[in-house]
Amino acid sequence: MKPPPFTYCDPESVDEAVALKSEYGSDSLVLAGGQSLLPMLNMRLARPEVLIDINKIGDLQRIERWDDILEVGAGVRQYELEDHQLVGELVPLLPEATGYIGHIECRHRGTVGGSLAHAHSAAELPCTAVALDATVVVRGPSGIRTIEARDFFQGRMTTALEPEEVLVAVRYPVTPQAAGHGFVEVARRAGDFALAGAAAVVNLGEDGCFTSVSVGVSSISDTPVRASAVESALIGEAPTENNIARAAEEIVPSVTAADDLHATHDYRRHLASVVVRRAITAAVARAHERRNGT
């Protein structure tokens, strides 16, 4: 299991990377953290003519806040999110979800942009981006383009990224102070691809009822799924166990994943509602904690 031959390029600027992508398009692949691409190269499931290593591009490694946006560069390593003070304060779902990605050795190399561009439906960051209404920032020959996360993931490991574009950052709206978040994932072994996972952020009004609910669900379809039906079933409702459980069932029709070695379709239909219920329940508990100042 050794990588096939390729031409290796390690540009130091986004411009250069975009120029390479423009020239080689789908004959080239971008190497970010390599935690998915290197296995594919080693198994020769990927055979790019040109490998564009973006690890030397300093511009991609920034974490910044402006206004109500937290912008995370595509090259930021996943582990950096885990104890990053700003990230924890502004988008607390992010570090929590990141802790579920593989094992620490993977998170030391794996990047934020790499996970989004790889777009595995079981992955944590795509699911979280969908739940958080994040915006993906890409650069192509004609400049910057932004894509809503829910439009970015288009199919099984396919995204709206054009062959000549490079994913440069992701912008997360800052989570309101009073909001609660929850992340739940079920896998055969801890660290494996999720059999199903859910990321939730909720806001409760003065009357204690849901004023907003955002839920992203992983591994039930070709792409991460935004659980819109669940969300609308809960808006204005009280966060009771029954209400949450009933609303969580609304995810079931979105489950399209076929049987595989690790889970059946029926199991995923069931599990989807379980993880959604649990993620919302955890988010509600956090929202209550915040309100009570604990």
Partner: peptide, 28 residues
């Protein structure tokens, strides 16, 4: 609970990597 050298009905092997052949980690 975890390990399976699986073949599908067509005889394709489904456990050719450690992503599918699940050896217990220290967590399990």
């Amino acid at each position: 609970l975890y390990e399976e050298l699986a073949y599908d009905e067509d005889g394709q092997f489904q456990s050719s990597t450690f992503r599918d052949y699940l050896i217990p980690t220290a967590n399990e």
